[in-house]
Each structure stands twice: as C-alpha cells, then as structure tokens.
Design a protein around this nucleic acid. Sequence first.
DNA 1: CCTTGACCTTCCAACGGTTGGAAGCTCCAT
DNA 2: ATGGAGCTTCCAACCGTTGGAAGGTCAAGG
Lengths: 154, 154
Amino acid sequence: MNIGDVARASGVSAKMIRYYETIGLIPPAERSESGYRNYDDNDVHRLRFIRRARDLGFTVEQMADLLALWRDRSRASSEVKKIALQQVAVLERKAEELKAMSRTLKHLAAHCHGDERPDCPILDDLADAAADPGKAPEPARFGPGGIDPVRVRS
Amino acid sequence: MNIGDVARASGVSAKMIRYYETIGLIPPAERSESGYRNYDDNDVHRLRFIRRARDLGFTVEQMADLLALWRDRSRASSEVKKIALQQVAVLERKAEELKAMSRTLKHLAAHCHGDERPDCPILDDLADAAADPGKAPEPARFGPGGIDPVRVRS
DNA sequence: CCTTGACCTTCCAACGGTTGGAAGCTCCAT
DNA sequence: ATGGAGCTTCCAACCGTTGGAAGGTCAAGG
C-alpha cells in the first residue's frame, strides 16, 4: 500500500503520516525501489489507533506512551488507566472552563438590546470587569492567576 | 508608564503587548527619547479589555472587531451581540465535544483493572474502534468527517 | 562618578499540529 | 509516448506565546 491508501484507510492525512514519521511517533516505513513508502494492514491499524487517540485529545507525547504500551502487551494496564484518567481530568476541566466562558458571554449578550442602540453591556464589561480582580460582576472569572484560555481549531 | 508597568497592571505580558502591536491589534505606543514605550491609563484599560476577551476564548481577529466597536460607541450593539453569540455557540460546541471525549475515556478506564493484568480495553478500543467508521461501540464518535479535535494550552 | 541591577529595545527561534506549495520523480492507463 | 495522478523532499506559514541573546537606559547606592 502506498501512503495515499493508508491515508484514506486510516483517516490520517499523508502529510501527517510523514510528519509523524519525522518526529518518531511511527517508525520509518519501508521503501520501494523508487522510494515510495510501503505500508501494510498493521500500519493502517496503528494509524487508526493514532487517529482515534488524537481525536480523543491526547497529545503526541501521550500517543507515544500509549503506542509503547500497545506494542508491549505484557505491561501493566494500570499505566494505561493512569494516562487515560489523567486525560479525563484534563478534558473535564477544559469543558468546565468553556462552559463558564459560555455562561458569561450568554449572560452579557442577554442584556444587549440587539438593536441600533449603542449601549451594549458586553463592551463595558470587557473593559471594566478586570479593573478589580477578585470582585467580578459575572459568574465566570478569568483574572490574573486564573484559568488558562482555550485554543480551538477552526 | 513603561511596558512592564502596563503588563503588570493589565495582566498581559510585555512580550504579548509588543506582539499585539506588531500584528496591529493595538496601535504603536508613543516612545520616549530613549525609545521606551510610553503608556497611560487608557492603554491599560484597552489591554485589560484584550486580556478579558482573550480569556473568553475570542480570537485575535474577533478582538480586533470588538475593539473597533468599543472605539466607536455609535455603532450598533447588535454587532457586538452577534459576535458574542457566535462565540457562545462555538464554546458550547467545544465543551460538548470535550465532555464526549471525557465520557468515552472514563468508560474505557472503568473497565481497566488497574492492576498488573495486561488486558486493558482502552488499547483495544483505540486500536479497533475506528475499524468500521459509523458503527461505534462507545458513545462518543470522532471518526472521519467527525468532530474537530480540541487543542489545549498546557 | 561609577558600578550594579532592573528595565527596556530589537531580532530570531521554537513550541505543537497541521496545511500548503513548489520542484521533481514514478506509476499506470490510454 | 504522453498525460495525469500520486509519490518524493524541502520550505514556509498558520495561531499565540515564550524564551533567549545582544545591547541600550534608568535609578539607586557606594
């Protein structure tokens, strides 16, 4: 199988497959005479593994850990569990932060007339809310020393 | 005020203030004779605005929009509301995705013994779950054509 | 006055994960 | 044999942020 085939079969783009190879997440693929990468079902399997782990929010580093555990089945499942539960905690915390942000914004938007009047409290809050960190008018606080912002992929 | 003062007062690092200046999010600061940037309370105010908007998950582009609206108070509040509600929708969607990921992982971890036995279903699921996209054994699905992964800041 | 240390300046690089493009080669079908 | 799809490598950009190096400036203390 060529890289395009595995890409389609695994859901990981050819670009990313090459990238994962360069960073060492996957071992270098065998090459044909002409230099094309050759893959088999095992590789597809592993790439599906990666794809799924990535979609579950694991970092490349964590994926490397999981792949190592997967490769060596004699290892303790407790390690896998530990990694997974760590990830659960991270995901839940991030979800809570997003919810809090959403709540704040929704609250602010609710007081916005939505007509041509220029007195929308959203801007005032954005401008004034952080004036006295610790005394927030709204539920969600993200002041100094607060919660990490969240980066999302468009 | 020097850049360090505004940085402390606004919660935006000096590095980021300079960066925001280079990308045009904020106008170039006035300089002293020696080349130091000079700021006043207004700048602190604006940077707090930015800080808060950033923490609420707005992109730099959206922040630029909001700042423009803030600057020109005669504009309709409906625009502000629109931007805010768009952001609410994005945040809620992302929060749901995170919850779904978390649910899947927690479910998988619950079937992991956590002892020395190597048969942890997490790895098997990661390896096999995506085998037939569309027929998932677990609640959360992130197959091809599915939901965007989430990037988080460590 | 001179040194010290904290502050400022610019520039350059890297992070992580992904995508895009350019230039050139190979494979397969017509 | 010619075209087009697919492969190769390399290089750059995206986002927001952080770090460092090399150098100039300020205020205080000896």
